[in-house]
Design a protein around this nucleic acid. Structure first.
Length: 470
RNA sequence: GGUCCCAUCGUCUAGCGGUUCAGGACGCCGGCCUCUCACGCCGGUAACACGGGUUCGAAUCCCGUUGGGAUCACCA
C-alpha cells in the first residue's frame, strides 16, 4: 500500500488559530494512524504579510500541541527555482501563456461583466496571441473552455464544477513570483503529498488545482474539505470571538491533549464517545466520520473536557504542567513531593491548570492571613478558640498525620468539645486556608504537615483573641 | 449577484428506511452524597428548519423554499 503523506501548510501571517490547529490535527492523526508522513510547509510567498514572529508562533503552538512533523519545515520562498521549472513546463506544453493585460484592463472586464450580469472574469484576450515574455507580462493558465471538473471529496462527496465558470487565472505575477494555486500544486506534487485535508474555504480552489495536476500530468491526491469552525454567533471565528490563538488556550491552563480531544470532537465523532486520549484519537480517527456542517467553538465544553483530562492524568505528570502557573503567581513551588501532594488534593476540583494554581494559594503562603472577611466573621468566633487549641494539642501529639490517625484526634476533640465534625471543620478550614473553600480537611492537613498546621491553628487562636480584646 | 457547500436539543453530536413519540455530551434545573467547594451518582429541560414528493413505512431518499456558510485577486 502507498504510504500516506499529509501536510499542514500554514501561512505565517499571524498566530496558529483554532481552525488551523484542527486541520493540522486531522492531517497529523491520519498520517500517524496510517504510519505515514506528516509534512510541515510554511507558505510565505506573501512577503509583505509574512513575519518571522508568526513562523515562531506557529512552531511554538505546534510544539505545545505536540504535533510533530516528519518532514520540513519547507519554506516556499526557498523553492522559487522549482516553481520556475514547472512554469516552463506549462509554457512548453501550451497550457500557459503570457498576458500583457494590465490589472486595470482586467478590472474593466469585470466591471463590464458585472454590468451585464455575467460572472466577472478575465476574458482570455491574450489566450491565443502567443505573446513572448516581457517585463509587465503575467503568465496565465489556459483553462479548458468546456467540460466539467469533479472534485472527489472524501468528506463532502463529489462536487462538480463547470469548466466554463473558470477563467484563465494568473499563475505567475508580472514580478516573476508564482501565485498560490500554482505553488501549492507544485509543492504537493514534489513533496509526494497524496492526501490533502484542509479547510472548507479551499473548495473553490480545488478545481483550479485539479486542472493544474492534469496539465502537469501528475496523479491526483485525495481531497477532503473539513467544515469551518464558527464563533458563538455562528459567524466564522475571528478576533471578536476572543481567543483564537492556540497558545492562548495553553495560557488559560488547558492541557494539550484536552484541547486536541475537543478539536477532534468538533466536527468528527466516534459514536457517543467524548473522551479520547491522544492514542485513542490516532487509532479511532477516520475521514468518513468527519461531519459536513460547520461547528461552533464552545469553551464550556472544552473546559469540561479539560477537567476530565486533568482528572485522568496521574498527579506526577501534572506537576511539571502546573508549575509554570504556580511560578506565575509568585509561589516558590518546585516539582517535588510537596507539589505532588498539593495536586493530589486539587486535581478533582480544578477544571484548568490556572484554577489549580489558584486553589493552591494556601499551600504556598506561610501566613494565610488576612482571612477572608466573611469566612472569618462566620467561623472564627470566640467559642471556637479553645477547640482550635485542643485540636492543635491533639495533632501535635500524633506520631504521623495519616488520615486515619487524624480522625482519632478529631474524634477526641469532638467529644471533649461536644461538637459535631461539621462545627469544627469550617473554623479549621478558615484557620488553615484563610477561606471557606478548600479540599477536604484531612487530606489538606496531611499535605501541609504538622509545622504549618500548628502554626496556623495558633495564629487563628491569636486572631480570635485580638478580636475579644477590642 | 454567480458558483459551491451545509441544515437533529442553546452548543458539539449519534442516527446511515422500520427495533427511536430520536440516544450521548456540554450547559441549565432539581435531588443524593457530604467537613466547605468540587468529584461522583440519580433525575429533569430541550431538537429532526419548512413544504412537497418516493415508499406499506422517512430524521434518514428526491425536489423546492427558507436560513446559514464558503468563494469570486498579479492574498494565501
Amino acid at each position: 500500500m502507498e504510504t500516506i503523506i499529509t501536510r499542514f501548510p500554514p501561512s505565517p501571517t499571524g498566530y496558529l488559530h483554532v481552525g488551523g490547529a484542527r486541520t493540522a490535527l486531522f492531517n497529523w492523526l491520519y498520517a500517524r494512524q496510517n504510519h505515514g508522513k506528516f509534512v510541515l510547509r510554511i507558505e510565505d510567498t506573501d512577503t509583505v504579510r509574512s513575519t518571522q514572529a508568526s513562523v515562531d508562533a506557529i512552531f511554538d503552538a505546534m510544539r505545545w500541541l505536540e504535533l510533530d512533523w516528519d518532514e520540513g519545515p519547507y519554506f516556499q520562498t526557498q523553492r522559487f527555482d522549482i516553481y520556475r521549472t514547472y512554469l516552463q513546463k506549462l509554457l512548453d506544453s501550451g497550457d500557459a501563456y503570457y498576458c500583457t493585460c494590465s490589472p486595470e484592463d482586467v478590472e474593466a472586464m469585470r466591471q463590464k461583466a458585472m454590468a451585464t450580469g455575467a460572472k466577472p472574469k478575465y476574458d482570455g484576450r491574450c489566450r491565443e496571441r502567443g505573446l513572448p515574455p516581457s517585463p509587465n507580462a503575467v503568465i496565465r493558465f489556459k483553462s479548458p473552455l468546456s467540460g466539467t471538473t469533479v472534485v472527489e471529496d472524501v468528506i463532502k462527496g463529489n462536487i462538480v464544477f463547470q469548466n466554463r465558470e473558470q477563467d484563465d487565472f494568473v499563475i505567475c505575477r508580472s514580478d516573476g513570483t508564482p501565485t498560490y494555486n500554482f505553488v501549492v500544486v507544485v509543492d504537493d506534487i514534489t513533496m509526494g503529498i497524496n492526501t490533502i485535508i484542509r479547510g472548507d474555504d479551499h473548495v473553490m480552489n480545488t478545481p483550479k488545482q485539479i486542472l493544474l495536476y492534469k496539465a502537469l500530468k501528475a496523479p491526483l491526491p485525495v481531497f477532503g474539505h473539513v467544515p469551518m469552525v464558527l464563533g458563538k454567533d455562528k459567524a466564522r471565528l475571528s478576533k471578536r470571538h476572543g481567543a483564537m490563538s492556540v497558545t492562548a488556550y495553553r495560557d488559560m491552563g488547558f492541557l494539550p491533549d484536552a484541547f486536541l480531544n475537543y478539536l477532534a470532537r468538533l466536527g468528527w465523532s466516534h459514536g457517543d464517545q467524548e473522551f479520547f486520549t491522544r492514542q485513542e484519537l490516532i487509532e479511532k480517527f477516520s475521514l468518513k466520520n468527519i461531519g459536513r456542517s460547520p461547528g461552533v467553538f464552545d469553551v464550556d465544553k472544552l473546559t469540561a473536557l479539560n477537567a476530565d483530562h486533568i482528572r485522568a492524568t496521574p498527579v506526577g505528570q501534572l506537576a511539571p504542567r502546573v508549575l509554570p502557573f504556580m511560578r506565575q503567581k509568585g509561589y516558590d513551588a518546585a516539582d517535588d513531593a510537596y507539589l505532588v501532594g498539593v495536586i493530589g488534593t486539587l486535581h478533582a476540583r480544578s477544571k484548568t491548570l490556572v484554577e489549580m494554581a489558584d486553589g493552591a494559594h494556601f499551600y504556598y503562603r506561610e501566613d494565610v492571613r488576612p482571612y477572608d472577611e466573611k469566612a472569618a466573621r462566620k467561623f472564627l468566633k470566640p467559642a471556637v478558640a479553645p477547640v482550635l487549641t485542643m485540636l492543635a494539642e491533639a495533632l501535635e501529639a500524633l506520631p504521623d498525620l495519616a488520615e486515619k490517625t487524624q480522625e482519632a484526634a478529631f474524634k477526641q476533640v469532638m467529644e471533649k468539645a461536644g461538637l459535631g465534625f461539621g462545627k469544627i471543620a469550617q473554623p479549621v478550614r478558615v484557620a488553615l486556608t484563610g477561606t471557606s473553600v478548600s479540599p477536604g480537611i484531612f487530606e489538606m492537613i496531611a499535605v501541609l504537615g504538622k509545622a504549618r498546621v500548628l502554626a496556623r491553628l495558633k495564629a487563628a487562636g491569636e486572631y480570635i483573641q485580638s478580636l475579644e480584646s477590642t
